[in-house]
């Protein structure tokens, strides 16, 4: 049960956003611009960074929902998502993506963990300033979202099909739930 009185059976962040729409709108706007806004990183890769950080933060709701969105966006290459969540270094994503996921993993621990050599490595594999910026900010943002969702003990569905549906919906973007359509 959630730590505060939110509507029962509404999963994860949606229940929290319905509880406090004023902050919810900014949170959804941030997710939308970070994960769907203009960027040279494909949406699939951005969702994968979100899922990877959520996995490292042990936030099942965020991990399963963003992994589902990433699988939809990768399409025929959807197995990359599970490879990364299983063992990032052994996965078949590009070396550039590995370097960015490595940076995201450091950010998940603490900002100070990111070293100049990590940045140099990502650059040498073709990552530009904006991609490095976006990777750090996505990882930092999911360090927030994960704590919000689990810190208030919001409802985490266990049924895998719930996340499949959620992933399909998330592909179309992030719009805050309203009390009528929740």
């Amino acid at each position: 049960m959630a730590h505060i009185k939110v509507e029962e059976n509404i999963p994860g962040i949606r229940s929290l956003v319905l509880f406090r729409p004023e902050t919810g709108k900014s949170l959804y706007d941030l997710a939308q611009v970070l994960l769907r806004g203009p960027s040279s990183l494909p949406e699939a890769e951005r969702e994968l960074i979100a899922a990877y950080v959520s996995y490292r933060n042990d936030c099942m709701f965020c991990m399963k929902s963003h992994a589902a969105a990433a699988r939809c966006l990768y399409g025929a290459e959807e197995k990359l998502v599970d490879e990364v969540l299983n063992d990032m270094q052994q996965s078949n994503v590009s070396n550039k993506m590995k370097a960015l996921l490595h940076i995201a993993g450091k950010v998940q621990i603490l900002g100070k963990e990111v070293r100049l050599e990590d940045i140099i490595a990502a650059r040498s594999l073709g990552a530009d300033d904006k991609e490095i910026h976006d990777t750090v900010l996505i990882a930092a943002s999911f360090s927030m979202f994960n704590r919000y969702v689990d810190g208030l003990a919001s409802f985490t569905p266990t049924d895998a099909t719930v996340y499949e549906e959620m992933g399909k919906r998330m592909v179309n973007g992030y719009l805050p739930p309203s009390s009528e359509q929740s």
Binding site: G111, V136, A140, S143, G151
Partner: peptide
């Protein structure tokens, strides 16, 4: 909880 979470974002963004 949300202020604490938000500063986990800021702190990582600034130092990261």
């Amino acid at each position: 909880v949300l202020i604490a979470a938000l500063f986990c974002l800021y702190n990582r963004y600034v130092d990261g």
